[in-house]
């Protein structure tokens, strides 16, 4: 199985570039603004779009993303509307991979098989379900794979050698390395920690490695981009969205300017290292 995610990483590899993955919450701060932002992200240098499916109880997330989830839900966001955003996005963009990230209960409530089918049809390329470890994910993974999507697994500093094969088997798209033990938007890993972790994962897997959690600015993103195949920034972008709510007419423009600074830093990281 091969989809937009695979094509995207093949292209990045060819150009010896790290990819930039942005995370935003679907429906934050409202559906209309969120849709506009989604459609503007590729032009701001985003290689892979990670779109959060809001949940009342996001246990792995820090205050910034928790607040974004609650803003979206207060605005009436639902899983159906999230899929609707992707469907609308695909009308004008057929190349940028979209990965949905969230928690299992809304999907289970929707119906795991039905959701897999509908997400595939909407044009979703991968899924990250935080609270669905390999031991429990078969009921959703099989229908998702059947619908042409990758199930992206998280690996963490606590994923030891013994456990790694379990995590790697059946995972696709890319490996998401959670660079710290903690929640989103919290502490930052050191460059050495990231380098060691990425090279360890590379010994065990052919999949591209994306690194996320705690990457707070362009400098940090660039550092990680020297070692990882992709860099994920979430809380910092989500915070930027929150900061721009009072002047909503400029939100998309301002957030995209910020995203552009991050993606530019990531894209030039290797050239800079070589120079």
């Amino acid at each position: 199985m091969s989809n937009r995610l695979d094509a995207c990483f093949t292209e990045l590899r060819k150009n010896n570039q790290a990819g930039f993955v942005s995370f935003t919450v679907a429906g934050d701060p409202d559906l209309e603004t969120s849709q506009k932002l989604l459609e503007a992200l590729p032009a701001a240098g985003v290689d892979v779009i990670e779109l959060g499916m809001p949940f009342t109880d996001p246990m792995a997330d820090g205050p910034a993303i928790q607040a974004a989830d609650l803003r979206a839900l207060a605005g009436g966001m639902t899983l159906t509307k999230t899929l609707g955003m992707v469907t609308a996005f695909r009308k004008t963009n057929s190349t940028t991979p979209v990965v949905l990230m969230g928690y299992y209960n809304p999907i289970y409530s929707y119906g795991a098989e039905k959701f897999a089918k509908d997400a595939g049809a909407a044009g979703v390329d991968g899924l990250i379900i935080v609270d669905l470890p390999p031991e429990e994910d078969e009921e959703f993974r099989l229908p998702a794979q059947k619908a042409g999507m990758h199930v992206i697994r998280l690996t963490t500093p606590t994923t030891n050698e013994k456990r790694l094969p379990t995590v790697l088997s059946n995972s696709g798209g890319f490996l998401y390395y959670v660079s710290i033990t903690g929640i989103t938007g919290a502490a930052t890993a050191t460059e050495q920690q990231v380098q060691q972790a990425v090279s360890r994962l590379k010994q065990h897997s052919q999949l591209p490695v994306a690194v996320g959690f705690g990457i707070k600015d362009a400098t940090a993103a660039q550092t990680v981009a020297r070692h990882a195949d992709a860099v994920v920034v979430g809380s910092a972008i989500v915070k930027k969205i929150e900061d721009n709510i009072p002047t909503k007419q400029d939100l998309v423009k301002n957030v995209c300017a910020y995203v552009e600074s991050l993606s530019a830093a990531v894209h030039k990281a290797r050239n800079k290292a070589a120079a």
């Binding site: 609270d131 470890p133 606590t158 994923t159 456990r163």
Partner: peptide
């Protein structure tokens, strides 16, 4: 029942 937790916690839960 089961173990529906983030990967960071899985090794610890085990």
């Amino acid at each position: 029942g089961g173990r529906f937790v983030a990967e960071t916690l899985m090794p610890l839960i085990l």
